[in-house]
Design a protein around this nucleic acid. Structure first.
Lengths: 340, 340
DNA sequence: TTGTAAGCGTTATCAT
DNA sequence: ATGATAACGCTTACAA
């Protein structure tokens, strides 16, 4: 392979192979429309010249970038990281690449990023949650772009959604605790600010409690964001109110780990004196001295399904438009019957 | 804004504004080259028509996609997730977007992904480590693409690198332990398979020990990949050999957490009977009952610096080509003087 | 300062 | 089955 003076292109291949550019293009994208003889001749020239088709030109001509944009609130939380990884692997399998953006839980930023991604010509857009900036729906409609809301399941909405049923998950988890005899519940919640998933999960808790005419006492509710240290602190605030709740529900995995570590530090006997549960399963929850009961969300599955759905749709195979992903309760040693 | 029948383009804007397409283009990309009057007229028409320039066409014309590709071994490990997040935020600030790929620690896959990204026309490529598939250097050279090796610092190499000095970091950590009187070292290493960072860190340990004529006994070395459960298991294997090492160095944060939890489960008194250290700092290490001494790598900084370097270079501002990122030893309760 | 028009490297529509 | 050739939507010499 001689060092080319000018970057070689389709025309060079065509010239060397003694065919038209159209034939080369067809030989690559629609082989069965080209005679065996030419097909192999072209192939060999392509290999010999080391030609690599220019994606931008192709994109301009086909109006397809084979690129898919995703906007996550953050990438450092385990669930989104896992989803991102699965997403990109699965997309790569279908010949698509992932354009990544981060909204930092801010709707305006999400909107702006979406605009950027659309300018880049993404074939589809992946969002998290179902409530977005007021201007987003119009933007999506005008650009006629395929879009899916992930990490939520709500078939009654208009758009496509792929994720767990957040309400149901926490409704069940709470019910499980109630059936263990718990009546006083504490909640270390994840902030519901710009987070409809957290809001929906909270709703699940309230629904389950309401069915039993129960409610969370004011002192037993604390709201934070994320992180073990924050979990510890919020947990301590909750157990400052007497009488203690006998079951504490945490809004995410890290808050739960924090609550657990703090309960240990305070010598609270879990689960005999108090049960603790979390949401989302990360490895440390299973490995702590007292493993934590939680809801296992298959984030990889969310990512994989989203990728498959998008590819299938883009390739013209019509599909469903709402997928519920599993959200199984994993019972570990941190939960038990209510004391006394 | 009336619903457009056909997607509006530059020519539509030009027509409505009563100017040439060139003027519209200039008004957008090089405002100071256009008279105030036309500039504002164009701007208003653009806004009125809601025109969004087509990125693919622009890319084809300028040979610039304003897109940067990154290939990480994985995205679920904390360090890469943090770096990715910082990377994309910082790139977004400069008007670039991140194309993400994942090599799964496989050189062939890295090569293939690189090829894909180059086809997509990325303006630059971000890799992890400095040893890649044999065919990669040629590929990069042929495409004359800007490239940086991250998470390594080795100014003697040819390419640009941005990251911590892995060897030095573990050399120091080991020295710190040796100065506490430790002589028998155990290592729960991260596999060095396709991972030059891990290899270099191991080298740092060996160098520090060699200076003191020390070596790791065969039974005191175990190699694994990642994960708390694996850390537990490898730790147990190491303490199966008598006499125990008095200090155990773990190859990453999760292996260290696993080792620590297992030592607790085995009722080994840390640090009195044994010191345990890790590499990379994640929140849980600071929050466990016995917080773990480790090396804090500022992955965010790696990401941010990489982004800044690339943007600066692409904008024509020449810069340095090797940046060392901090790798500070964070001393916590898991380390202390060697027993007896 | 502004306009004209020639690319940019493919794909896709027509003929042949 | 193949080949000419016109898009694709923008940028950018070069002219005016």
């Amino acid at each position: 392979m001689i060092h080319p003076r000018r970057k070689i292109g389709l025309r060079d291949v065509a010239k060397v192979a003694g065919v038209s550019t159209a034939t080369v293009s067809r030989a690559m994208n629609n082989p069965e429309a080209v005679s065996e003889a030419l097909r192999s001749r072209v192939a060999s020239v392509v290999r010999h010249l080391g030609w690599v088709p220019d994606g931008t030109a192709r994109a301009l001509a086909t109006k397809r970038t084979h690129t898919i944009g995703a906007i996550f609130p953050t990438l450092t939380h385990g669930d989104f990281a896992r989803a991102t990884q699965a997403l990109q692997s699965e997309l790569a399998l279908g010949g698509y690449t992932l354009l990544l953006a981060c909204s930092e839980y801010r709707p305006e930023q999400e909107l702006q990023q979406a605009q950027k991604l659309l300018e880049r010509g993404v074939d589809a857009l992946i969002l998290v949650g179902e409530t977005h900036h007021a201007a987003l729906p119009a933007l999506l409609r005008n650009n006629a772009v395929l879009c899916v809301n992930t990490f939520v399941y709500n078939p009654s909405t208009h758009g496509t959604c792929i994720g767990p049923d957040n309400r149901k998950a926490l409704y069940r988890l709470t019910t499980y605790l109630a059936e263990l005899g718990h009546r006083r519940f504490g909640v270390v919640a994840q902030s519901t600010e710009n987070n409809d998933r957290a809001r929906t999960r909270l709703q699940g808790i309230h629904d389950a409690l309401a069915e039993r005419s129960l409610a969370i006492r004011p002192g037993h509710f604390a709201e934070g964001y994320w992180g073990i240290a924050e979990g510890r602190q919020l947990f301590r605030r909750i157990v400052a109110t007497q009488p203690w709740p006998t079951a504490v529900i945490c809004g995410n995995a890290y808050l739960a780990v924090g609550a657990m570590l703090e309960s240990q530090a305070m010598n609270i006997r879990v689960p005999h004196e108090m049960s603790i549960v979390g949401y989302d399963d990360i490895e440390i929850m299973a490995e702590l001295a007292i493993p934590i009961t939680t809801v296992r969300v298959l984030s990889d599955e969310v990512g994989r399904r989203t990728a498959r759905f998008l590819i299938a749709t883009l390739e013209g195979k019509a599909e469903r438009f709402a997928y519920e992903c599993d959200a199984e309760i994993v019972i570990r040693a941190s939960t038990g019957p209510a004391p006394r």
